[in-house]
């Protein structure tokens, strides 16, 4: 059984290399019972998306449309 530490490592690795069959299976099993690692997986996708947006946006510190008041309403 994987620990969360190992699972989070495999989730990171899967962004950089192809996981082996055994790794994929144990990881899948772990994710079915672990909400923390499932969130970790999703959030790595979010981070990747955010980084690409950060790279490709037009102005540093200016990704927001003018409609946003930047009041820090966190979602």
């Amino acid at each position: 059984m994987l620990t969360c530490r190992q699972a989070s490592r495999l989730l990171s690795d899967s962004r950089d290399r192809k996981l082996g069959l055994g790794e994929r299976i144990t990881l899948r099993l772990h994710l079915t019972i672990c909400d923390g690692c499932t969130q970790f997986d999703r959030q790595l996708d979010v981070i990747r998306q955010v980084l690409r947006r950060y790279r490709d946006r037009d102005e540093p510190g200016d990704a927001a449309p003018p409609t946003d008041d930047g009041s820090g309403e966190h979602k």
Binding site: R53, P60, A63, P65, D68, G72, E73
Partner: peptide, 10 residues
């Protein structure tokens, strides 16, 4: 939603 919030990028 965060992506459209200026504060988020800071």
């Amino acid at each position: 939603a965060s992506l459209d919030n200026r504060q988020f990028w800071v």
